[in-house]
Design a protein around this nucleic acid. Structure first.
Lengths: 348, 348
DNA sequence: TTGTAGGCGTTATCAC
DNA sequence: GTGATAACGCCTACAA
């Protein structure tokens, strides 16, 4: 009673405080929290009361330190503004939450150097696993990840030689396929519009170009790119630029994402260019808007939520289950041909 | 050389390992990392070499435990899919990153009960401050936050009695203002379409209704809401629903967000309803799409990035600076009248 | 089923 | 400027 019980007011209660109030040892309180089945119902009740009355909240730092288990998954994405990652994150969070894991999220701003710094930050939190984006990490970053000796998933794209696990799809093949599909619909003069030009965007472009080359339909002047971040506004600008450099000869444009494609579509409407009559448009990522805008926008659909879920599940499989089942998952994609491209069989 | 130096391979290097290699005491290594000015250049160099050679990464759990400083800011948002929070988060992250703070982010799924659980999780990480959304926390949640005795910012809306600090704007007033503006443009029969109907959406609706009531323009049947989450698809559905229940009498609709408004706009086009000729549309949040779609969509612009920045800065002011400057910031909003509503002076 | 001892990696405090 | 020592709060042994 004297000189001991004033704890609750001044600072955070500890296991020991709870133990004292419940008249048990600290380890018993710990067990009530972590292994309730190993404690008698009687004590469990008593301890729980003490916890409630003190408003006890465990100190994860102490727990992590003592047990070498942080229940943290580190996640690094290249952009918080690119809404593509919203769905992926939602998938990761859903799985993590459901399994008692916290997510520590960092934004690398599409910079391997920043990524290296952020990964170091993440690792200092002793995450039990990491989910990172793509494969263009610095060598130092790879080394850190390796010596951390935890499960790592590289997501968003399929890698030749992943560090550990990998889930994504082939951006190269997707770009290639888009070119083929556009040609099939009767389009003859295909242009490309790209922004940011991160590795995945480049792969889409390379695949697209490859398909054109193979069919003698490649015109370097019809490829317009910029390192600026994508936006709808930029899509409009790039459209104008491409139209003018091509003197209007182009009859189809593949935009590296739907922001650009929507911007190009809206700008076309303002310029009185008929889509798909005068110009066909195809985007990438399949935003919800793309399916509903008039004319609806052809795009490449990617199961992003599923990709996030898969990434998190691969990690849990390794962390909890013993079976190191899947190491590489191609999540695929689907080209959605809509009104912004000619329907098959129509003659341009 | 014997029986000591094989550390680096098996498990993570510690301060002690670095100290040993550098031939100094552990505390010196710690100082090199945290108070470089208190160490001689000579030792600093030696220690740094050891750090590099071992690939040493500090253990934040141990640091937090010993120093009672986690450098973590806990952030709770109601939805990872609602892109409204992207901008806010970006603001928070930008400021946090620049000041060496990590962000621990949780998604409460618009549920105060989940929020309570998540806040408990956050608090167990000993965050130095918290940013939460709105004011509808459970009592238990409020108690936890209070006894945590850390700076707390409630964001997104202006609260009468914030727990601590507060940044946002009045959704009620915004809704009210939209009604007034629509009436000013000559619209007479105003409807409302809302989804999710979280507290902030409700406030927009209440303000909107209030303005109509004051002007004898309120028709309860012209208010359509659903607890479903917002989407473009849903916007189309709700438009149809409202059109049919009002037998087409409505000449303007305020949609509680731009998803719904865009959906309504696209559906109007499909139904051959002229916007704004037959029907005026106003959204909320001012997505980039809204400014570029044809016709461009009137909406309420909110400085979300600035709101995130402000929230983080208020916290830093408290954490670092001593001046407890701002406790409540009204970040404001701006009604953007565009082509989807009649231009002022036109006679409907 | 419950408790005791020791240590996880770091930093605060106090000496030198 | 540098170092020894004792916490920080919890958990993994092991013991009873």
């Amino acid at each position: 009673m004297a000189g001991r019980t004033r704890k609750s007011s001044s600072k955070r209660a500890t296991l020991a405080d709870v133990a004292q109030v419940a008249n048990v040892s600290a380890i018993t309180v710990s067990r009530v929290l972590n292994h309730p089945d190993k404690v008698s119902d009687d004590l469990k009740r008593r301890v729980q009361e003490a916890i409630d009355s003190l408003g006890y909240i465990p100190n994860q730092s102490a727990s992590s330190l003592a047990s070498a288990r942080s229940r943290v998954i580190g996640v690094a994405i290249p952009s918080l503004s690119n809404i593509v990652f919203n769905d992926v994150l939602r998938g990761i969070y859903d799985v993590a939450d459901a399994n008692g894991y916290k997510v520590l999220l960092v934004d690398t701003h599409y910079s391997p150097l920043e990524e290296e710094k952020m990964v170091r930050t993440l690792l200092s939190q002793s995450p039990e696993a990491m989910i990172i984006t793509g494969g263009d990490q610095t060598r130092a970053c790879h080394r850190m990840l390796e010596s951390a000796a935890i499960p790592v998933v590289q997501m968003m794209e399929i890698l030749d030689k992943p560090l550990d696990m990998n889930v994504g799809f082939s951006h190269y093949q997707a770009g290639y396929d888009v070119a083929v599909r556009l040609l099939q619909t009767g389009c003859k003069s295909l242009g490309f519009v790209g922004a940011r030009m991160d590795t995945r965007t480049q792969q889409r472009m390379h695949g697209f170009v490859k398909a054109l080359e193979e069919r003698n339909a490649y015109k370097p002047e019809w490829i317009v790119t910029t390192p600026e971040p994508s936006s709808i506004a930029l899509g409009g600008e790039l459209l104008r630029s491409l139209i003018s450099t091509s003197s209007g000869a182009i009859d189809a444009i593949f935009c590296c994402n739907d922001d650009l494609a929507l911007g190009a579509l809206f700008e076309s409407q303002r310029m009185n260019i008929k889509v798909p009559g005068d110009l066909s448009l195809c985007g990438f990522n399949d935003f919800e808007t793309s399916a509903f805008v008039n004319p609806s926008l052809s795009s490449v659909h990617v199961p992003r939520y599923e990709m996030g879920v898969t990434a998190a599940q691969m990690i849990l499989d390794r962390l909890e289950g013993g079976n190191d089942s899947r190491n590489k998952v191609d999540i695929g994609y689907e080209i959605m041909m809509r009104q912004s491209t000619p329907s098959l069989g129509s003659s341009n």
